[in-house]
Design a protein around this nucleic acid. Structure first.
Lengths: 199, 199
DNA sequence: GATATCATACCAACCGGTCGGTTTTCTTTA
DNA sequence: TAAAGAAAACCGACCGGTTGGTATGATATC
């Protein structure tokens, strides 16, 4: 295999192994040795590709949140009205929760670490702000197209963001405790009601 | 001092020291030795009173969440209408966030550990359900007194719970990023609007 | 003197990270 | 085109330090 390909392949293997391990056992509890074992790679290779364990973690944050952003923007690409779009997004909640549980557990990990480490905090924050902006844009669009009443987009976006985060955290803690898809839809409807334009 | 008193005193000292240390540096990063040092107690004393480090952590969860529940029920004790009560609670958001940051960071810690350990999960869950029930009761009360429209209390409670959790998580991650007191109030108003009885 | 409470010294396991050296791929040169 | 040297990629033993936990003895209370 060509050098560059080989390099990228092991890099990716390490990253994938780390994602698994971190999600299962947590950042602190996961040793570099374990990641290497899972990836089928020596410690030397690990430290050849990543400067420290934390650097790897930061890379992981970036990759994963970018993925999430892309998934979000995809939902945005159909051409119905804003309220319908928001409802459609809430419908996907259950899917994401069940199919991506390990990754979501990783977000918890990010969050916890971020509250104690400045570098991680900034990394998570920048992505989080992008999420917020996404909701704000969505609401502005709704106001412009006349399907939403002229509320403050920043405030509305905040509500959606909080609601979504809160639901995710709960769903993560208690996956079988409720039908989170329905809960998400019901909750979204309630919030949407206060923003919908009334004739 | 009598044996029993002395024993309870050191037990409490260890617990308090652990709460501090865990909140500041996290569960994994805090060593037993550090807890002992803070408590002014030897390792022997530590392991005489607590079987393992994790057992101490579980005790801490219980104590702390009970405290939180009690604080919540106190807010409930004044006698205005439900919407006013909810708004008043949102007003206290900033206070709690600034004055209790370390403890809130601990909740993050609980949460993360809970998603991986069954025992912790159950402990956190039971307290969290009590939290949810609190909101449900509040909404039922509002519907009964006629200040809220007859929505499904479970759904409404869910919205408030998610909103609150989401706001806390954000405030914890980015304490100076916004005036979280105002954000909380604004968000609460929006959600309340969709539940308020309209004449 | 018996028992509960604590102190000290200690250990095996593990941790993140380093380092000298080996293998594989790429580049140069003749 | 093939040998040879350079560079990239990787290996695994090893290190200093730390960790949760223990074994044993001291001291205060009963």
């Amino acid at each position: 295999m060509a050098n560059q390909q080989r390099s990228e392949a092991t890099r990716a293997r390490i990253l994938a192994a780390a994602a698994e391990a971190f999600a299962e056992r947590g950042y602190d509890a996961t040793g570099v040795a374990e990641i290497c074992e899972r990836a089928g790679v020596s410690k030397g290779a690990f430290y050849y590709h990543y400067q420290t364990k934390q650097a790897l973690f930061l890379t992981l944050i970036d990759v994963w949140l970018q993925e999430l952003n892309r998934a979000l923007e995809q939902t945005d690409s159909d051409n119905s009205t804003v309220p319908d779009r928001v409802l459609a997004m809430s419908g996907k909640f259950q899917d994401i929760l069940t199919s991506r549980t390990p990754q979501l557990a990783l977000i918890m990990e990010f969050w916890t670490q971020a509250s104690r480490d400045e570098g991680m905090r900034q990394a998570v924050l920048s992505h989080y702000r992008a999420f917020q902006q996404f909701f704000v844009d969505l609401i502005e669009l709704g106001v412009a197209e006349g399907t939403l009443s002229p509320i403050d987009p920043a405030a509305g976006g905040q509500v959606f963001l909080s609601l979504t985060s809160g639901l995710f955290f709960q769903g993560l803690l208690d996956p079988t405790g409720a039908d989170w898809g329905k809960v998400a839809e019901r909750s979204t409807r309630i919030v949407l009601d206060s923003m919908r334009r009334r004739e």
